[in-house]
Write a protein that binds this DNA or RNA. Structure first.
Length: 833
RNA sequence: GGGCAAGUGGCGGAAUUGGUAUACGCGUUAGUCUUAGGAACUAAUGCCGCAAGGCUUGAGGGUUCGAGUCCCUCCUUGCCCACCA
């Protein structure tokens, strides 16, 4: 017997597999499909540590089993290379981002290549490849040209909306929008092109609007809410780098994800995902059902409100409440400091100076100051203004206060200090009335006061622009009159620039490219999440130049069956990808409602000291070194054995020797193999029980217990004088997904010609799972006193008789009267005295 | 403040979902082999006790013949959200 030399074996088989295209995915056919996907990485350039491949190994083990179970497995890998990480790396190393991506991808692939992962590398995608981002841009244009029909509950072409406007204006239109002025068909036809464009922007799913954004001066870009964290002083800082972030208002491209809020929420129920992630998304979407109720305004001075077009309308304060049942206990009304009504009522407010100064102060405050927990509530009463409670016609004072948020609900509340803690705090501070009365029926009172039941969401539309160079250009241009036009020929490629470093301006580096600006192109680029919101579809048909993926491929592969990646993308990528996928389904591109049917999230691997692996702490373990010393198979086994897949685990340099010893033992079993040996019933029971267990447990990614079962099986085989070859081969097959190299070597040594990885997964033979006898536990008063071998399914009477004759039990019973006997077949008998 | 996880030997963890708690692995101890071993192999290894036996799954109650698992109260840790009406 040769020595187990992992270096030789692993290298050889990796070359052999690639040469023979063992892992190439078949084209759509009659075979059942299985799409096993890893979240594709940012090629960061820092190199991998042993924590990174945990998810890749897990999905690979799963994919390998499925391949052996005769599924047509799609298991691809690619790169999400646009966005901040690549750009930051490029700036730090003073090279072009494109070059940085090339270098980093190479490093990444080299490291991955040692681990024996069964990707079909021919399907590799890269979001920065113009042939790829052509489709990112194409999808953007589809969104730009679509709006959301709330009756049909799907996206429809914007052109159909224009037709309605031309025929009957925008009254009673069921399209989701952010526009509240009514116009007639005649008025629409008379609008200028620019005015029409402005109005349509309020309906498009990709739209431009003045929006408050989180601006980071150091990174020179706008950041999404989920890219911001609070530092230890409670200030907003960027997640990447920890730089200061402030609020500014600029013209931005946004995605109307809120149109899909209800579908994003209800779709969660159909997904086999970790409950925690689904819950995070539910909270993020934040649906609450309540009532919108108008409180008429009563002014000290005469007259109504003068709207911009000169009409006088009776002013109303529309409040949102989930507790309409408390309306009789409302004692005041509060507007957010940003509420439009405040400026409209300017002339009627008797203490305008005081009000204005409060509004200005609120604006300049960072959100974090406003929302700090221990902060005292502040506000100013609008003197000269009263609101009428429509339930009892009581006159209530009107306040502005920054504890009411402008962007949630209607930006106004009826305050019920009796039932709401925040209102009570405020009422106590300003000595406002607190009333206690019985509750009423929420629905009834809402209808009675002319309000309506509505759903509100915490989720807001997603900003879809970065003031950066390294992203997909937005495929639109503005002519001299300011009219937007689509770029007809995609891709619209990024121009070459001298400096791609952040300019610190809200425009981004592209603003410095004369030809770009004079062509009327946008100087913002798309955010990092654009390219990652549909890549799973592109893998289905990565080289198609006519469509995101061809219809035949799309209909065959449908969606991802098993998605593996980090839980940290709960409110980012995983939400955006679901949104785009639903949209693509609406326009007939995707075929399922949800992109990722089943998902499991690998836990992080921490260093031995319990901290994150980082150069800073000097605790990084490099997988290359582990592979060199112990082999890829050992690394794979150890990472699967280290603990539950979805939980944190600490790397232990001592622990890795266990799986290595295990493989040595597997290797030595070669000496015992004999074709003619007849396996005992007992051994066949253990073997088939293990096959059964692994088949079931792998389905749920419970790798650690699988490895444990394999170890137990090896111990059993070691006890045998001689081992039947076909049984040994069955064992090699169930070990193969975990340790692909050593099993391939041993499999070939036994004379097999085709790769073990395309061999057939062993079948569990039910007849071997049945045993003749079983060990049961004998308890007296619920305490274990002895154990006993009985026939399988033996009757209670028979077991009871045996137990009562047992000497040990006799001693514990010592002649007492037996009150009760509990018998659990094949498990235990409990004598109660 | 709200939501979601989790708490089991010296360590990583297992427990067929209410039925032998501590599987499997690491470590430790003893032994075998060896010039040597930080290699390999064999055995032991939750705690107290010479033993019989008793105790033990964050704490305390409860349900049950029987609880790591179910219920109640509380403590600790991690993650997500956070003045969202």
């Amino acid at each position: 017997m040769k020595e187990y030399n992992h270096l030789k074996i692993e290298k050889r088989w990796q070359i052999e597999w690639e040469k023979n295209k063992v892992y190439k995915t078949n084209n759509p056919g009659k075979q059942k499909k299985m799409y096993v996907l890893d979240m594709f990485p940012y090629p960061s350039g820092a190199g991998l540590h042993v924590g990174h491949p945990r998810g890749y190994i897990g999905s690979d083990v799963y994919a390998r089993m499925k391949r052996m179970q005769n599924y047509n497995v799609l298991h691809p890998m690619g790169y999400d290379a646009f966005g901040l990480p690549a750009e930051q790396y490029a700036i730090e190393h003073k090279i072009h981002p494109r070059r940085a991506v090339e270098i980093n991808v190479k490093t990444f692939e080299k490291q991955l290549s040692f681990m024996g992962l069964s990707y079909d590398w021919e399907r590799r995608v890269n979001t920065t490849d113009p042939e790829y981002y052509k489709w990112t841009q194409w999808i953007f244009l589809q969104l730009y040209n679509s709006c959301y029909d709330t009756k049909k509950n799907k996206a429809v072409p914007i052109s159909s909306l224009v037709k309605i406007f031309e025929k009957s204006g925008n009254k009673n239109v069921s399209i989701y929008n952010s526009f509240d002025t009514i116009f007639t068909a005649k008025e629409w036809r008379e609008f200028s092109e620019i005015e029409k464009q402005k109005i349509l922007m309020n309906y498009r799913l990709a739209y431009e609007a003045e929006a408050e954004v989180n601006w980071c001066q150091v990174l020179g870009t706008v950041l999404a809410n989920d890219e911001i964290v609070n530092d230890k002083d409670g200030r907003m800082v960027s997640e990447r780098g920890g730089y200061k972030v402030e609020k500014i208002k600029i013209n931005q491209w946004l995605m109307r994800i809120t149109a899909y809020a209800d579908r994003l929420l209800s779709g969660l129920d159909t997904l086999d995902w970790a409950n925690s992630i689904k819950e995070i998304q539910r909270n993020w979407i934040g649906k609450s059902v309540g009532s919108e109720i108008d409180f008429p305004v009563k002014l000290n001075s005469r007259g109504g409100l003068t709207s911009p077009d000169g009409e006088v309308s009776p002013p109303q304060i529309r409040v949102f409440t989930t507790r309409a049942d408390t309306i009789f206990m409302a004692t005041y009304v509060v507007l957010a400091p940003e509420h439009d009504l405040i400026f409209q009522l300017k002339d009627k407010i008797e203490n305008w100076g005081e009000v204005l100064s409060y509004v200005e102060k609120a604006k300049s405050k960072e959100d974090i100051d406003r929302t700090r927990e221990d902060k005292e509530k502040t506000g100013v009463e609008l003197k000269g203004i009263r609101a009428i409670n429509p339930a009892n016609n009581e006159e209530l004072p009107v306040w502005i206060a920054d504890y009411v948020l402008a962007h949630y609900g209607t930006g106004a509340i009826m305050a019920v200090p009796m039932h709401d803690e925040r209102d009570r705090d405020f009422a106590n501070t300003y000595k406002l009335k607190i009333t206690d009365l019985p509750l009423v029926d929420a629905k009834e009172i809402t209808q009675k006061v002319g309000g309506q039941l509505v759903s509100k969401y915490k989720m807001r539309d997603a900003i879809f622009a970065r003031q950066r160079y390294w992203g997909e250009p937005i495929p639109l241009y503005r002519d001299k009159k300011g009219i937007l036009h689509e770029v007809k020929k995609l891709p619209l490629e990024l121009p070459k620039v001298k400096s791609y470093e952040p300019t610190g301006l809200a425009e981004g580096p592209l603003a410095g490219v004369k030809s770009w600006v004079s062509s009327g192109y946008e100087t913002n680029t798309m955010p990092g999440w654009a390219g990652s919101s549909f890549y799973f579809l592109r893998y289905m048909d990565p080289k198609n130049s006519k469509a995101v993926a061809g219809e035949k491929n799309m209909k065959y592969w449908k969606n991802v069956d098993m998605y593996v990646g980090g839980a940290e993308h709960a409110t980012g990528h995983l939400l955006y990808a679901r949104f785009w996928h639903k949209f693509l389904k609406d326009i007939g591109v995707a075929v399922t409602e949800e992109p990722f049917a089943k998902m499991r999230n690998q836990g992080m691997i921490l260093a031995h000291d319990g901290r994150k692996m980082s150069k800073r702490w000097g605790n990084v373990v490099n997988p290359d070194d582990v592979v060199k010393t112990y082999g890829a198979d050992t690394l794979r086994l150890y990472e699967m054995f280290i603990g539950p897949f979805d939980q944190y685990a600490s790397w232990s340099t001592d622990g890795i020797i266990g799986p290595r010893r295990f493989l040595e033992r597997v290797w030595k079993l070669q000496n015992k193999i004999n074709k003619n040996t007849k396996s005992s019933k007992e051994f066949l029971y253990v073997l088939h029980n293990t096959i059964n267990k692994i088949s079931l447990e792998l389905e749920d990614m419970r790798f650690n217990t699988c490895v444990s079962s394999l170890m137990i099986l090896v111990s059993e085989m070691e006890k045998l004088e001689s081992l039947n070859q076909s049984d040994y081969e069955k064992f090699l097959k169930i070990l193969a997904p975990f340790a692909p190299h050593i099993t391939e070597e041993l499999w070939t040594e036994l004379g097999n010609k085709k790769s073990i990885h395309v061999s057939e997964w062993p079948k569990v033979e039910k007849k071997f799972l049945k045993q003749d006898t079983v060990k049961i536990v004998v308890q007296v008063n619920g305490k274990v006193r002895t154990e006993m071998l009985v026939d399988i399914d033996e009757s209670e009477e028979s077991v009871k008789n045996k137990v009562l004759k047992d000497q040990v039990i006799e001693k514990f019973l010592s002649g007492q009267e037996i009150k009760r006997v509990i018998y659990v077949k094949n498990r235990l008998i409990n004598i109660v005295v």
